Simulated scan of single mutants.
Amino acid sequence: MTEPSTAGAADPGPATPDDADWTWVLTRPCPDCGFDATALTVGEVPAALRDAATRYAVRLAEPDARTRPSAGIWSPLEYTCHARDVSDVMRGRLEQILDGAGEQVQFANWDQDETAVQEQYWRADPTTVQREVTAALEAAATTYSRPVGDQWEWPALRSNGSRFTARTLALYFVHDIRHHLWDVNA
C-alpha cells in the first residue's frame, strides 16, 4: 500500500490510464463488478445514481480514503472525484441529446486521466468531495428523470465514433458509477 496523501502532499504519480472502450458493457455483463445492462431499466437510473451518492459518501468517511491500494491505482478519494466529474459530463451529454431534439449530436472528447491530473484529485478534501459527489449525482439523477418515450432513443456519437442513444448512455453511465464503487469496495 502507498502512504496516504494529504492536502499538501506531492503528486503520487499518474494512475495507469484507462483507454479501454467500455461500450461492450451494454451487451454483456461486466465480469468485475457484475453490472448487467439488460437488468436495469431507464426508470431505475435515477435511484441507482442516488444510491451511489450515498455509498461514495460513506466510503470517503473511512480512514483509508486517501490511500492508493498500489502504485498507479487511484485511491477511493480519487475515484470519487472521478465519479463526481463523470456525473457532470454525463449529465451534460444527456442535456445535449435532449437539446438536439432527435437529431444526432456529437459529444466533445473528455479525457478523464488529464482531468484527474489537472484537478489534482489526490489533494482533494474528502469532506468537500462528499458534498460535491452527492450534488453531482443528484443533478444527474434529476436530468436522467427527464426523458420520456421516444426521447430515450435519440442518437448521439462519441468522439471515438461510438454510437449511443439516451438509453444506452444512461446504462453506460450507471455502469461507470457502479464499477468504481466496486473498485473502492463500497
Rank of each mutant, 00 (worst) to 15 (best):
T23F: 07
P29W: 05
N185L: 11
A170Y: 00
L60N: 05
V148E: 10
A186Y: 13
A141I: 09
P12Y: 00
R146I: 07
V42W: 06
S162Q: 10
A65T: 03
T127Q: 13
T165E: 13
M90F: 15
E62V: 09
A52N: 08
E78C: 03
D150M: 05
A57Q: 11
I97F: 01
V58G: 11
T165P: 12
W154S: 02
T38V: 03
V58A: 15
W74P: 00
L171A: 07
H180M: 07
G102V: 06
Q112V: 10
P29I: 02
V58H: 13
Q104H: 09
A20M: 04
V129N: 01
A7Q: 14
P155N: 09
T115C: 08
V117Y: 11
D113Q: 04
D19G: 11
S5C: 11
P4M: 04
P31L: 01
E119M: 10
V184W: 00
E103P: 02
G72F: 12
A39E: 12
W182F: 15
D19C: 06
R146G: 04
L60G: 04
S162F: 08
W122C: 08
A15W: 04
T54L: 12
R131L: 12
Y121Q: 00
T80Q: 06
W152M: 09
E95M: 11
M1R: 13
L49D: 04
A135V: 09
D88T: 12
P76H: 10
A61N: 12
E44V: 03
A9M: 06
A135I: 07
G100N: 08
L60S: 05
G43L: 08
E3Q: 15
A116R: 06
T6V: 12
T67N: 03
R178S: 09
M1A: 14
T27V: 14
V105M: 01
P12G: 01
T54N: 08
E153C: 02
A65C: 14
V105Q: 00
G100W: 03
V117D: 14
Q130E: 11
T142N: 10
A186S: 15
Y79T: 02
R131Q: 15
E119R: 12
I73W: 00
V42Q: 09
V105R: 00
G34C: 09
G13H: 05
I97N: 01
V174E: 02
R84N: 07
S159T: 11
E44T: 04
A116I: 07
W154Y: 13
Q104W: 05
L171H: 03
Y56C: 10
S75T: 04
P63G: 01
P14K: 11
A39W: 00
W110M: 07
T165N: 13
W24N: 05
E3W: 04
G8T: 15
S75F: 01
Q118T: 14
T127M: 05
S70M: 14
A7P: 06
R123K: 14
Q151A: 10
Q104K: 13
G161N: 08
R131A: 15
L77N: 02
A186W: 08
R123Q: 09
R50C: 02
